[in-house]
Design a protein around this nucleic acid. Structure first.
Length: 481
RNA sequence: GGCCCCUUCGUCUAAUCGGUUAGGACACCAGCCUUUCAAGCUGGCAGCAGGGGUUCAAAUCCCCUAGGGGUCACCA
């Protein structure tokens, strides 16, 4: 049993996006690899942007992906008193101080610095306020923030499991705010306290936090905590190498789910973003990845996410997955398209299974699979115009279809071979090759020029429907010409 | 702008301590299979950002340049 404890700490300000999900995944992988504990924590100290429904969505996305946490979810909003007490302790110990500078004042200073192209650092005006001044400010009713006293020299070294030692000169850091004037902690402060009280041993998070790490270490140092290990995983970038945002198409787990991606495909794909197992294997389960996951094999380079590979992977899982499971996942999509109306009886279920088995061979996601299945449920559909031109408008097309319809009526056994044999016979009778009959038949049966194996399709539809659709096509042809 | 991180095919990546024809996968192209579309199989195209060092030998170590990213909030 190891004492490894890791955490995923999203803020509930939006849907779980692909970057956050990958961070959560790496945390979980590491926990499973080491026999450690995976903690979920909701960083909700931003009152303006945090919303409870985002928390719900976050949990749902995590669960859907199978990123099950061992502890939590804890919420920062439930520990507000703790942060306040720690901040006051720092003040009592002379390691932090009240700052009464107004926002306008600070803003002016920042703009001034920008104008002069100098880096802005808080000028420490309130660092050594006399007792008199302090009292006066208090009497004026001004609400102070609390700032941490940063050493004016020396350096802070971050030891990162992925990047090695990263050095920061303290002179580039200023006395940053740890408690806002509304009494809530800032991220850098709350995080350190949370990680301590949750006994987090490894902080695994996105690289964007690397620059903030010295601030957190300084907090920990002031508070007298010991430091966790850090591991900053590379970012996931949009195809244009910019930071991922909504304008880059599907970036949230929820969007991928709605488009019919399977959780195991998303997991497998994300695992490969920044990490690779030994050998050339591309497909593996989360458990298999966890068995050999190591932080020092995580890449340093940001990864551009490319949905083409995810789509390919999804197609693989769609085809290879256990049929009953794929069907279960597909039902909501079929319902949304108005093809089925759950609950399904065993006959309907059997039919759906046949349809899915057939169609999943050639589609990449559940949404496409559903749309490519519509003609198994709808008797009326449009015929593909190109197909009409090529197959229906040819001399004798109606005749052939009429003959086929008649032949179908004589069949009773809905096996692919039954249809195959019938086609052999009728081809002989009409003195045509089977290859000539098939595209025409396909168009009549589905309105499309492509799709599953024709005889398989017919077997699912059954002779009666097949016959009716042939006649329907005949009517269409007669009406058109 | 200051500080920090990063740089292998278009994309994801492999190449344990320097010695490989720089490997695999997606995508793309071609062929096979085939009633179609997929899938599958076979083959092909394609990369060590640039420049200096160190070394018998550098994708690998060091330096510089360029490029990309991150961060500098009373956001997380």
């Amino acid at each position: 049993m190891s004492n490894v404890r890791v955490r995923f700490a999203p803020s509930p300000t939006g849907e779980l996006h692909i970057g956050g999900a990958r961070t959560a995944l790496f945390n979980l992988l590491y926990a499973r690899a080491t026999g450690g504990v995976f903690v979920l924590r909701i960083d909700d100290t931003d009152l303006e942007r945090s919303r409870p429904e985002f928390t719900t969505g976050l949990l749902e996305s995590l669960r859907w992906l199978g990123l099950d946490w061992d502890e939590g979810p804890y919420k920062q909003s439930e520990y507000l008193e703790g942060y306040r007490q720690e901040a006051e302790r720092l003040i009592a110990e002379g390691k932090a101080y009240y700052c009464y500078c107004s926002e306008e004042e600070l803003k002016a200073g920042r703009e001034e610095a920008r104008r002069r192209k100098k880096p802005y650092l808080y000028p420490e005006k309130c660092r050594d306020l006399t007792a008199d001044r302090l009292k006066r400010f208090q009497q004026e009713g001004r609400k102070p923030v609390i700032r941490l006293k940063i050493p004016r020299d020396g350096e802070t070294v971050v030891t990162d499991k992925i990047r090695g030692k990263v050095r920061f000169d303290n002179c580039n850091l200023d006395d940053f705010i740890i408690m806002k004037s509304n009494g809530l902690p800032t991220y850098n402060f709350a995080n350190v306290i949370d990680d301590e009280r949750m006994k987090i041993t490894h902080v695994i998070r996105a690289e964007e936090h690397l620059s903030n790490t010295p601030r957190q270490q300084l907090c920990a140092l002031a508070l007298g905590y010991s430091l966790p290990y850090y591991a900053h995983v590379p970012m996931i970038l949009a195809p244009d190498r910019s930071k991922l945002s909504k304008r880059h198409g599907a970036t949230s787990v929820e969007q991928f789910r709605q488009e019919g991606y399977l959780p195991e495909a998303l997991i497998n794909y994300m695992t490969l973003l920044g990490w690779a197992p030994e050998g050339d294997r591309e497909f593996f389960t989360m458990a298999e990845a966890a068995a050999q996951f190591r932080l020092d094999r995580v890449n340093k380079t940001a990864a551009v996410y490319d949905t083409a590979k995810l789509t390919w992977m999804n197609g693989h899982y769609l085809r290879e997955g256990a049929l009953d499971r794929i069907v279960a996942l597909a039902i909501p999509f079929f319902e949304a398209e108005g093809l089925v109306n759950p609950p399904l009886n065993s006959e309907q279920m059997g039919y759906l299974e046949q349809v899915v088995e057939l169609v999943r061979q050639r589609e990449k996601n559940l949404l496409d699979l559903t749309r490519a299945s519509s003609y198994f449920y709808n008797n009326h559909f449009d015929y593909d115009p190109k197909g009409v031109k090529k197959h229906f408008r040819r001399e004798g097309a109606g005749q052939i279809l009429r003959a086929l319809a008649a032949k179908m009526k004589t069949l009773s056994d809905p096996e692919p071979s039954t249809f195959s044999n019938a086609y052999k016979e009728i081809a002989k009778e009409l003195q045509l090759s089977i290859g000539k009959l098939m595209p025409l038949s396909r168009l009549a049966l589905s309105g499309r020029t492509m799709g599953p194996e024709l005889f398989d399709m017919m077997a699912v539809l059954g002779p009666e429907k097949v016959s009716a659709r042939f006649l329907q096509a005949v009517a269409y042809i007669d009406a058109g010409s």
